[in-house]
């Protein structure tokens, strides 16, 4: 009886150890470098906005865990705008990556990046009318967007898509917090 128990523990431990070593090895082989990750983000960004010459912006000490990249670029008219690549926690399949485009302190475009949400669910909140709730508002004055809240910073969620909506809202709020702190600095 005791011998069986010891054998079970030894075998399971050995299998787990070998698995751990194998996974560590594969992680070393497949881990993305910082440059590769940034190139991938820019590639995705290029699919949603016409990039001209995106330049990394000095963060001036502003920091937010949710904001992974911060770029400056110009539009067709030569006007400067900012791109914030953010991640919002709380989604059904984990964090949702968002591209937040800001011009004159106002969000003028939102697009989704990597995520593991159910596509049909995410589509319900990635439409023009839903995202319009975030657009064209002075984000340095608004503080944060509040899901199902009233007033200018209130965003109406969609029934049955609340988790994806929460992740999107958190991602936008990360951009708002970061941008506001950056402007103040």
């Amino acid at each position: 009886m005791k011998k069986d128990m010891v054998k079970s523990v030894v075998v399971l431990t050995a299998i787990a150890l070998v698995s751990g070593v194998l996974l560590g090895l594969f992680h070393q082989l497949t881990a993305l470098t910082a440059d590769e990750e940034e190139a991938r983000v820019l590639e995705k960004l290029a699919e949603v906005v016409e990039l001209r010459d995106p330049q990394k912006v000095d963060r001036r000490g502003a920091d937010d865990e949710g904001v992974s990249y911060f770029y400056r670029d110009t539009d067709a008219a030569g006007e400067e705008y900012y791109i914030l690549v953010t991640e919002g926690e709380g989604g059904y399949g984990g964090p949702v990556e968002m591209f937040v485009l800001v011009q004159d302190d106002r969000i003028f475009r939102l697009a989704v990046g990597s995520n593991a949400e159910t596509p049909s669910k995410l589509e319900q909140i990635l439409n023009e009318s839903y995202l319009a709730q975030y657009l064209d508002k002075d984000i340095t004055a608004i503080g944060e967007f509040v899901l199902n809240g009233g007033g200018e910073n209130g965003v109406d969620a969609v029934v049955s898509v609340t988790r994806s909506a929460t992740a999107v809202n958190n991602a936008v709020n990360a951009a708002v917090r970061f941008y506001t702190a950056w402007k103040e600095a």
Partner: peptide, 9 residues
């Protein structure tokens, strides 16, 4: 997990 890591890369 190996498949996942290889696909992600």
């Amino acid at each position: 997990t190996i498949v996942e890591m290889v696909m992600q890369k």
